[in-house]
Computed example of a mutant assay.
Amino acid sequence: MVQYLSKRQRIHYLDLIRVLACFMVMMIHVRSAFDLKTDSATQFFIATLRPCVPLFIMISAILLLPLKDTTSIFLRRRVSRVVIPFLIWSILYVFLPTPSKINFGGLENTLTASALAPWIKSLLMIPINFTWVNVHFWFIYTIIGLYLFMPIISPWFEKTTSKGLSYFLFIWVLTTILYYAKIWFPQIHGVCDWNEYGMLYNFSGYLGYLVLGFFLHKYNTLTKVRSILFGSALWLTGAYFTYKGLLFSLSQPERMTWILTEGQKVEFFINNLSINVIMMTAGLFMILQKITLTGFFYKVVREFSKYSYGIFLVHYFITIWMIHCLKTYEMNGILNSWIQQPLMALLVFFGSYLIVKALSYLPKSEYIIG
């Protein structure tokens, strides 16, 4: 998504993280072909691969903060490299052929029961939110919001010290721990029916991943072995609690009385802003940060990294058709689920890459694939 390296030396390990995070997204999305409630492989993958989106945000912080240009130049670049391709593909997803009745759907809103044609409703939704046909674009709305905030926080990133970053991260992590307090106390620290913004609200959200990425990039001075060992311990601990939490929400949803909808119950313990997912994300980052690729292997990773945003934009179209074909021709389950899901993700990844690579030869392709 972020190709902002022309003025600075390329940071090799970020290419590896970007490609791996992109593949993890594919893994999470192909799981729709399997039953989350009964398939153990799906449960494992959906729980342990949650760091994919947070890793993208951490990369953005490292590449973009503090800003090296004026606010206007920075925002113009974000618009041309991120927003315009997002808008183009949002429109394409409305008109590209999709299986069954996936053309419109999503969170209930005033358009849901409208008599308008599905394609009109989907177009009207683009400035508002995603629909089921482009559900993966929820992340783009999030990252655009962070881009808008970057010019404001850039001076702080430029001047702050490790102590300043640690101060913010301490309170941010505290908000992710208090996230679980709603099990016993649904409303804390000033939150009530007429106020949804509690005491620590301004320290919460995906902004924390920007700070975490910047902090680990600049201040993780551990040796390679120690960083990998400590990172592995963090990832394993976070993965264990995320996986166990998911199993609990699937097996005993009736006990989760503090949540109203079934979807929120499934997502509660695997939320990107829970302490367990943060542990997984930080741990995986610390591992990959110390891995050095050279020669042919790095050239391959760099090639995929170059087109990663385009791959992300395209992949869901391939994913929904692949799942549709597997179910239509009753091919799902031919292979063991532990094998089939990674193979499906690989096919989606390479298929998306080939499409994006072909599109890259078009004039002004940067406005299409980022």
Results as ranks from 00 to 15, higher is better:
I143F: 06
I120T: 08
Y147S: 14
F185R: 10
F170E: 06
F137N: 07
F130M: 11
I153R: 06
L178A: 01
F130E: 14
N103K: 09
F104Y: 12
T175N: 04
L123P: 01
F157A: 06
I126H: 00
I144A: 10
T142F: 02
L174T: 14
L169Q: 14
K163P: 00
S154P: 09
L165N: 14
F185H: 08
P155R: 05
V133N: 11
F139W: 11
F168V: 07
Y141H: 12
F130H: 10
F157G: 02
F149Y: 13
T176L: 12
P118Y: 04
Y147D: 10
K159D: 02
P127A: 11
T131N: 10
I140E: 10
S154T: 09
E108F: 07
T142I: 15
W132V: 14
S122L: 02
P186W: 02
T110D: 14
H136V: 13
L169C: 11
N109A: 04
I140Q: 10
P118L: 03
T160G: 06
P186S: 08
L178I: 13
P155A: 05
F130D: 01
I140L: 15
I171T: 03
T161G: 05
W156G: 13
E158C: 02
F149C: 08
L148C: 13
S162R: 15
M150V: 09
V135Y: 07
F137I: 00
P151D: 07
F104Q: 00
A113D: 15
Y167T: 12
P186T: 10
M125I: 00
I183K: 05
F149L: 15
L123W: 03
A117E: 12
I128C: 02
V173E: 03
I153S: 05
Y179P: 04
I183V: 12
T110F: 15
W119C: 05
I140W: 05
Y147G: 15
T131E: 01
H189M: 15
I177D: 14
L165A: 12
Y141R: 03
L111C: 08
L111K: 03
K182C: 03
M125N: 08
W172I: 06
A113H: 11
K182A: 04
F149S: 08
I128D: 08
K163V: 09
M125K: 05
Q187V: 06
I126E: 00
F137C: 10
F168E: 12
T176V: 09
Q187I: 08
Y147A: 11
K121Y: 01
N129L: 06
L107R: 05
F104D: 02
I183P: 00
L107N: 12
K163E: 08
T175G: 07
E108K: 09
I144C: 15
F104A: 04
T160H: 06
T161I: 00
Y180T: 06
L123A: 03
I171R: 06
W184Q: 08
G164F: 03
Y180E: 09
S166Y: 03
A117W: 13
W156R: 04
V173D: 09
L174Y: 01
L111R: 01
